[in-house]
Design a protein around this nucleic acid. Structure first.
Lengths: 195, 195
DNA sequence: GTCTATAGAGGGATAGAC
DNA sequence: GTCTATCCCTCTATAGAC
């Protein structure tokens, strides 16, 4: 593997587990087998390295979700929502991805303005989800003619996924729990919105 | 206000927003109007200060939830679950509390072992919730005679709350969204478990 | 591109005057 | 209990040899 890719890999692990401030250039270099100073031949600064890693991972999430949307298009709503929920779980079985995702959520909820150039590269997980779901679901709900029902429906769905990801972070993925959560959600959704 | 309390207040804000590594003793002292060295008359180390703040806030959460449980005891299941959900939202309208809560979740999901003495003071948010809910709900579900249904029911409920707290962190509390989320959950729960 | 050397800043923490 | 002075360490980042 190219050195630059190895650095990004190591940085990915460290930033996910220890956070931006908790990670040092030395931590990253050590895993690659380099001196910390050598990292600066590949990245101008720690912040640049962090934002590069974050952006690449965010693009990966978006890419996998989009691929999943293509496969699910046209299916019945239940299969579609269940399939998308399942895709999120699959993507975030990667613990580092999940940690970065949740750290980003916290970043957006806090006053932390450490990362000066973050504006261009960082997108809130909620916004990312919203874009995906809107694209996927608006066709199914056009008949509702009730924008606010659609929005609250979306929110409930996103909440369930984010909640389950929180669960995965500490407890790990569990097929039984997952499917119970899904059934509970789907039962509620059909009663409330679809009748 | 006593100096020690002022320090904890300032530390509470900083640790919540910037994280443990992202907060310096100078940051904390500055807001109080002290030099950083003076903090060491009140706390032996940065770690001790952090764990003290964390523990006090965790106790506060537990205390408010317990108080809420007392008020809700004996009510119909729907009122009870809705009331408890509402209590969680009220508690975490305090943004710093919410940030600390979510940071703790990440700490438990990561390899980060920076805090040497964390074992005694830190409890995973999932464990805290589980204790509360078990105490509250076991009476209601004794007739089920089906431990695994009870557990998945609990998980779905906890997920919804954690998911909504994630939402609050970035988007803020919204009464309409909140009540839609609750209805969706409750519809699912009645269909699935209570018939 | 990687290394050694080093700058320069800031971190946590201690000693001792007041 | 708060201050100044200071220690020692580690951090990010740069300069320049190879």
């Amino acid at each position: 593997m190219a050195t630059k890719a190895e650095i990004k890999d190591s940085a990915y692990y460290c930033f996910a587990h220890y956070g931006y401030e908790g990670t040092t250039m030395q931590d990253i270099a050590k895993a690659v087998g380099l001196k910390k100073q050598s990292l600066y031949s590949h990245f101008q600064s720690k912040e640049e390295l962090y934002l590069t890693v974050l952006q690449e991972q965010q693009r990966k999430v978006i890419g996998e979700i989009k691929a999943s949307l293509v496969k699910l298009r046209g299916k019945p709503l239940e299969d579609l929502l269940k399939g998308l929920f399942n895709s999120y779980v699959s993507i975030f079985l990667d613990r580092e991805m999940l940690l970065l995702w949740k750290r980003t959520l916290i970043y957006f909820g806090s006053d932390n303005k450490t990362l000066i150039n973050a504006g261009d590269t960082m997108t809130s997980p909620w916004d990312m989800m919203n874009d995906d779901f809107y694209q996927l679901l608006e066709g199914y709900f056009r008949h509702l003619n009730d924008e606010s029902s659609f929005r609250t429906f979306l929110i409930s769905y996103m909440l369930m996924i984010q909640g389950y990801l929180d669960w995965m972070l500490v407890m790990g993925h569990n097929e039984t729990a997952w499917s119970a959560v899904w059934k509970n959600y789907w039962n509620g959704a059909t009663t409330f919105f679809l009748k």
